[in-house]
């Protein structure tokens, strides 16, 4: 017979034990993510087609603004591809971040009635955002890349590398935000501003030649942005160039550090979450 004891101040539950328990809930994670994906546009006339239409519309908007109106980045025909690779991957991260906190505060009924590893909530959100990213990248290859004369090379096989490292980083960040937002709801109000600032500070809408003449510390600041490493890895893989070893190392380091900090602080605090819901 299963005996569970809830004590007032139990020792921090072992993280390996937690991960093993999480594995037992993998079907739930899959079902939640699938539910989010199929439910997101359930009320819409076009239904799941929106998963394809959305990135297409986004491509259209950026093409109109940066390709036609602002006249393409002088002499760089690949700018639209450069830009969209950044927009899509950044969106994956910001969606996971804002969605994870929301998934917990929005599932108060679930969290106060059923015991399950709470990490399934941010994980399901990330799987949903990852699906959106993969669909976007597919449209990228069918639409944007041919226009810009970019063809997949063998280096495309390395795309899972930045995807994995960036996911680790993203999950770390998402769990960290969720862990803060649940007791201190105010944090939620900062998130859109922080992500917007981060978006503009990352080389997405602008290229690095912009800061060539800037002082060394500004350049250093730009390059110490974790997103700088991930963008560089994504772009090289997508455009069929070899991955840079330095960015690979930095991306792995950022990913590991944030994953460890975020997930362990999330796990240690998840049993007190129900108090704030």
């Amino acid at each position: 017979m299963a005996t569970t004891t809830v004590e007032a101040h139990p020792g921090a539950p072992g993280e390996t034990g937690y991960l093993r328990r999480l594995w037992g809930w993998r079907s739930f994670i899959r079902e939640l993510a699938f539910g989010n994906i199929s439910g997101r546009h359930a009320g819409d006339f076009l239904g799941v087609l929106w998963w394809v239409i959305n990135p297409l519309l986004m491509t259209g908007v950026y093409f109109l603004v940066f390709g036609v109106i602002l006249g393409g980045r002088r002499g760089d025909p690949a700018f639209l591809a450069y830009l969209l690779a950044g927009v899509f991957t950044f969106r994956f991260m910001s969606q996971t971040m804002s969605g994870s906190a929301k998934a917990i505060t929005g599932s108060s009924k679930l969290i106060t009635t059923i015991v399950f590893p709470r990490l399934v909530l941010p994980l399901a959100v990330m799987i949903e955002a990852m699906t959106a990213l993969l669909v976007s990248l597919a449209t990228f290859y069918f639409l944007v890349a041919p226009i810009n004369d970019i063809w997949p090379s063998l280096w495309l096989c390395f795309l899972p590398v930045p995807l994995l490292l960036h996911s680790m980083f993203t999950l770390g960040l998402a769990t960290l935000t969720a862990r803060l937002v649940v007791p201190i709801r105010d944090v939620r109000n900062f998130i859109p501003h922080l992500t917007r600032m981060w978006f503009y500070l990352s080389p997405i809408l602008w290229t690095l030649d912009r800061i060539e003449e800037s002082s060394g510390w500004i350049q250093g600041l730009v390059m110490s942005n974790p997103m700088y490493s991930y963008l560089s890895l994504y772009r090289t893989a997508l455009m069929g160039r070899p991955l840079e070893p330095l960015q690979l190392a930095l991306g792995a380091a950022w990913g590991l550090v944030f994953l460890l900090i975020g997930v362990s602080s999330f796990i240690r605090n998840e049993r007190s979450m129900a108090r704030y819901l």
Binding site: M1, A2, T3, T4, T5, V6, E7, A8, P10, I111, T112, T113, I114, V115, R271, S272, A274, R275
Partner: peptide, 19 residues
């Protein structure tokens, strides 16, 4: 909630035998 195990008490213990 304390009995269901979704809320950790500040003090005291809860033991539950069964599913």
């Amino acid at each position: 909630r304390v009995i269901a195990g979704t809320l950790e008490p500040d003090a005291g213990t809860v033991e539950v035998r069964g599913r």
